[in-house]
Design a protein around this nucleic acid. Structure first.
Length: 571
DNA sequence: GCCGTTTTCGGCCCGACTGTTTTCAGTCG
């Protein structure tokens, strides 16, 4: 699958064109194409094979040819030529905050600066001084930008961002007379990682909000401080933007500030077609205010149903919204149980009853106690004798608890040779079998794919846990043929997991969408090792929603009896 | 470079903040 590679190239073409000062709309066309290709749930080569390239929004005659050229020859001539015209390092200048295409072009044109190291040297040697339009502050900002780039946090996991955002929101809510205070931006869209935090506040006196915001104890640097909009960096290097609006503009501002950028552009185009103007203050007809107080009324006046924030990425949701065919996204309250949970029997910290009680308190009606299997010694995997004792304990807990069922489960190891860590005899006794890879994940694409595919083909395996194995900040996804996995999972009625652990979130949103498109069922599980961790389920739900999942796509939204029938292939 | 119940040519989202200017360009979201 060459989708991501291709998107990357288009994006780079756009950057080079930007520096060269080319037509802005040509640049945007490449950016848009890159984004749309990235969001595809299907292999780009399939589009070529079936002659549907031009059905992808933003792909016309020219880009179709470029795509075909790339798939066929692995290169794009236009791109190769462009790369020759500008040294690679010049593009890296754009990563520095405060440096955009114009500045990068000027630096390269006037001072032959070909990268960040060059730029630092030039500043040291006072070479920037005396250039038209560059004074002390510009130089200071570039220096600050370089420092930020080197030390600053690039992206942080959603869970961390939510905590930081909560602190800011509570602090702002203490301002006397303040109205709504909400997070917006990619955080509200629940992207798995976010670069900065956006907060929107309703107030009659925006200046007061700005002053309070920029002087909170967590603030280290003030990046901008205006009348209605400010931007700061925290002691930990996280950028937080805050904007204050009038109560009548709250909905418009939420739409605007939540994004995504491309989603906003699409909405504004729709507005124009209706003879309206859309900005962060509202919808206007000839400067007359039409709507703006709530998001719901904004969408309504644009002729659209409410679009959930997680969908607002301009990857086809607007087209569906126009036809009123948006998916009804799954919610946390739809989850009836957790099918991947550990206890003291393997590497968990709580006993079976503790986990069951905690799950019951969350409103679940079942959990599967899926402790590790015998070969995974580091996690205290269970042998045959352990399993017998564990089963007795489960029976005991089940007798005691009302309206709740502990399912006898395992997270069985997919061994390095592709075999399953328990024999058929043992496997068939479990209510729920989750299979997973924890060892030998550098075997290469073919071998890894065949291990997972074999597990799917084992009739006792119901779910593949954390199917791509990525660990945020530690380990990339395994190199597997995901299309092959989807095909076999579908054939064998094996569910793929969304592992909700904040550093896993595996499957991710794009893969979830691909799985749904392929007709594969999903299980959203916590993988909790202590009772408190059952609550990470919400992060899996975020991923599911970003992957367009509805209740019916997820097996653990089913009541117990139906769930058992479904996973055992009995209906 | 894309796209079309206004159009196959001429449009293409909109505004805040900053730093440098004498009215605005560049950057950012």
């Amino acid at each position: 699958m060459k989708n991501l590679e291709l998107a990357e190239i288009f994006r780079e073409i756009a950057l080079i064109l930007e520096i060269k000062g080319e037509n802005l709309f040509r640049i945007r066309a490449y950016q848009r194409a890159a984004q749309n290709i990235e969001g595809l749930t299907e292999d780009i080569e399939d589009f070529i094979r079936t002659d549907r390239l031009k059905e992808i929004p933003g792909i016309g005659a020219d880009l179709s040819e470029r795509i075909k050229e790339f798939v066929k020859t692995d290169r794009i001539k236009v791109y190769e030529d462009l790369k020759k015209s500008i040294p690679a390092g010049v593009l890296s200048l754009l990563e520095i905050p405060s440096i955009g295409p114009k500045t990068a072009k000027m630096l390269y044109g006037k001072l032959k600066i070909k990268g960040i190291a060059d730029l630092e040297r030039a500043i040291e040697e006072h070479m920037l001084e005396g250039i038209k339009g560059v004074k002390e502050k510009t130089i200071a900002n570039i220096q600050k930008g370089i420092t930020l780039l080197k030390t600053g946090k690039e992206h942080m996991p959603l869970a961390l961002a939510m905590q930081i955002a909560d602190d800011f929101v509570s602090a702002l809510k203490k301002i006397p007379g303040i109205g709504n205070v909400c997070v917006a931006g990619s955080l509200r869209r629940r992207k798995e990682t976010v670069r900065d935090i956006d907060i929107l506040a309703v107030s009659d006196s925006p200046k007061k909000v700005m002053d309070t915001f920029s002087t909170l104890p967590a603030v280290k640097d003030i990046l901008a401080h205006g009348q209605t909009k400010s931007s700061i960096r925290t002691q930990d290097g996280v950028q937080v933007d805050c904007r204050a609006v009038d109560v009548n503009s709250f909905g418009a501002a939420m739409v605007y500030f939540t994004g995504s950028k491309n989603f906003n552009i699409k909405l504004r185009q729709i507005a124009i077609k209706k003879g309206l103007k859309l900005n962060e203050y509202g919808l206007f007809r000839k400067n007359k205010f039409v709507a703006g107080k709530t998001e719901a009324e904004m969408f309504k006046h644009l002729g659209l149903p409410y679009v959930e924030p997680e969908l607002r990425e301009d990857t086809g949701e607007i087209q569906l919204a126009l036809k009123s065919k948006l998916p009804i996204l799954i919610e946390l309250k739809d989850i009836k149980g957790d099918l991947h949970v550990h206890s003291k029997w393997s590497d968990g910290m709580n006993g079976i009853e503790d986990m069951a009680q905690a799950a019951s308190k969350l409103g679940y009606s079942y959990i599967a106690m899926t402790d590790h299997s015998q070969s995974l010694r580091v996690a205290n995997g269970l042998n045959k004798d352990d399993l017998k004792k564990k089963r007795l304990e489960i029976d005991k807990v089940n007798k005691k608890m009302k309206n709740f069922r502990v399912l006898y489960g395992t997270e069985v190891e997919i061994n390095s040779d592709g075999s399953i860590d328990y024999s058929e005899d043992i496997l068939k006794q479990f209510d729920v079998v989750v299979a997973a890879i924890h060892i030998a994940f550098k075997q290469g694409k073919e071998k890894l794919t065949s291990r997972i595919v074999n597990a799917c083909r084992n009739k006792h395996v119901h779910i593949i846990a954390h199917p791509t194995g990525r660990l945020w900040g530690t380990r990339d996804a395994y190199d597997i043929n995901f299309d092959e996995v989807l095909k076999v999972a579908r054939e064998t009625n094996t569910a793929l997991e969304i592992n909700s652990f904040p550093n896993r979130l595996d499957l991710n949103d794009t893969n979830v969408r691909r799985a749904k498109a392929a007709g594969v069922k999903i299980a959203i599980n916590s993988d909790a090792h202590i009772a408190e961790q059952l609550k990470v389920m919400q992060f899996g739900i975020f991923v599911a929603r970003r992957g367009w999942l509805e209740r019916k796509d997820v097996i653990n939204t089913l009541p117990l009896e139906q769930l058992l029938k479904t996973i055992k292939n009995e209906n």
